[in-house]
Design a protein around this nucleic acid. Structure first.
Lengths: 339, 339
DNA sequence: CGATGGCGGATAACCGATTAACCTGGCGCT
DNA sequence: AGCGCCAGGTTAATCGGTTATCCGCCATCG
């Protein structure tokens, strides 16, 4: 910048002000300086500026895994919002490992992010998070740390689950399994609770044997459904922790000669793009991943602009999308009698 | 850091050296300093360090769109490699817009990245890229800027295409369409060339009417196949620019009462996760997106470590994965006669 | 006519690390 | 005793911007 200033015959300070269009600098001078910038191919050094101003115009996004379509969409949403406001996105992943999560948070803080959007790894302790929150604002991608005085945006596990189960009950199903997800995650617990409460409310027994935890992968769903089908009284429907698991369940069903949507209903969660493309198309609880990412970014930008704003907790609505994988049980019985 | 030094009763310089385990500092002193760090909750300021050392330990990744599964996997691969070496990933997207691409490159340079991994937007000019390359090393995610003296890692459009077409010919197909992709992209041109050359080499006419450009979306494939089916002598197979397009083609076929893999063969490109899950499962040219991301990151790290290393161009192997969507034409004819 | 007040710009301290160069006490050696 | 040398630190300049403060000059005003 000194070079630019010299070339324009002004001081470094003047150059600095001119580049940011400060009113103090006259038009002709500003133009001379801009010309010098072009001529010299000067590139502004944001890090140097950050050092002085203590604002980096960057925020970190810490998720478990980008290759998961849900997270990819979320990332896309967040990045778009941030870029629009001139912020950059530092991305890192934890593989749902607490240790790695700590390292990543530390790294981000060292890089002086203005804020951190975090999808906490399973088992993250409130105390640890609170410790980090001293250093920069956080937006949590989950609604389950309510004692933490942090902004958050989560999806509505509860309403979505209730709708899904009521839909299945409405179709005539009575033996409904709850499939997949890691046992310890708050999201799964919330959905499991809604699942159980809804059943009970409708006068249907809650059978613990029908809820099976699993890794969040197709394999997880595949294995789980195999297990379910060997039960003496197997379920006729599965409410799955995620679409990915639902896909696994449908594959498992097919392997057992059962087609989802005929004698067996399947409902997923997330509404990833493939859900509508699958054959049969997957009924699922839609959560708008991109919207969650956008919302998180917006919340962060607001928080940065106004640090003392009251804590905001956003629950993004989820809605049930009924497609072909969930069919009426009566229909299934009819088919069964025909074969 | 001054505070830490004071607390440990040493100078700032000593503290700095101690934190980086410089041999000059004795063990007891180092421990005292580390203790002070803990006690004060000090966080290292990487930006300040970068300012001085001119190394930010961060690299930028500029792609068109993260929500595309191929790019998401690529991103995951790159991030993992970089994180492993202590580098951070700045992610931004261009929506395949040249203007936005320029802005993003500029932003990244201002943020003082050590390198930039770029998937150039359609139509990016060599000259423009060369201009940016003065400022930091680039790794291009395409093999088609060979006059640019930049490291790159691309997929093997050619071999993959040849295999796919030969596979189809081997199955008895003679009217093979080439479907989808933006006309102007180098990748599409390369695949189109391989497609044509392979046909000709096998003594089959190349019919320009059988190659249809389209947006890279399901819709694009859907519309294209509709158009193909109205031809006087429609194709019996489609080689698609991407899996996404192939999905569209299969949907279009189904809408026309044709099931892919029976009277009509479909092959995609990318081998995205859903390819194996589709019904029928999609034959496709597999390219290992995550591997490309990892390779790009590794190349970048090597380049940073050794700036004068000769330019490296990596072509990641692609292989044909034969699944259910590509069936023998004879089989299709048999079926035709039966019906 | 001297005081006042802008305007447009210059000076220099500062942000938080890194590092070349310098300092010092103690030990071994001749 | 004198000298060199090393281990273990310290000093201060530096990276590239930002910004509080100061300055000179000219127009305006009572």
């Amino acid at each position: 910048m000194q070079d630019v200033a010299d070339a324009a015959g002004v001081s470094k300070a003047t150059a600095s002000l001119a580049l940011r269009n400060h009113a103090r600098i006259s038009e002709p001078t500003r133009l001379r300086i801009r010309a010098a910038v072009e001529a010299l191919g000067y590139v502004y050094n944001q890090s140097a500026a950050s050092l002085r101003t203590q604002r980096s115009y960057s925020v970190g996004l810490i998720i478990k895994d980008v290759s998961n379509p849900f997270n990819a969409e979320l990332t896309a949403g967040a990045e778009a919002q941030l870029a629009e406001q001139g912020y950059s996105l530092l991305l890192c992943t934890t593989d749902d490992d607490l240790d790695k999560q700590s390292r990543m948070i530390k790294t981000m803080l060292e890089r002086d992010v203005d804020g951190l959007i975090l999808s906490p790894a399973t088992g993250a302790r409130t105390g640890d998070l609170r410790k980090w929150m001293q250093y920069c604002p956080f937006v949590l991608l989950t609604p389950y740390y309510s004692d933490l005085a942090a902004d958050c945006v989560g999806m509505d596990d509860e309403k979505g689950s209730v709708r899904a189960i009521e839909h299945l009950i409405g179709l005539g199903h009575r033996r409904i399994a709850f499939v997949g997800g890691y046992d310890a995650t708050s999201s799964r617990r919330a959905r499991l609770r809604s699942y159980r409460d809804t059943l009970i409310k409708r006068g249907i027994d809650f059978d613990p044997a029908l809820s099976i935890a699993s890794p969040v992968s197709r394999r997880g769903g595949y294995d789980a459904v195999q297990q379910l089908l060997t039960m003496p009284e197997p379920p006729t429907a599965a409410y799955c922790f995620s679409d990915v698991i639902a896909f696994g369940v449908m594959l498992g069903l097919r392997a057992a000669g059962i087609e989802a949507g005929q004698s067996f209903a399947v409902i997923g969660f997330d509404d990833v793009e493939e859900a509508s493309l699958w054959h049969p198309s997957l009924s699922t609880v839609s959560t708008n991943a991109k919207g969650i990412g956008e919302q998180a970014a917006q919340l962060m930008l607001k928080r940065i602009a106004e640090p003392e704003m009251p804590v905001q907790r956003v629950i993004m609505p989820s809605r049930l999308v009924e497609r072909d994988s969930s069919a009426a049980l009566v229909h299934a019985l009819d088919q069964g009698e025909l074969s």
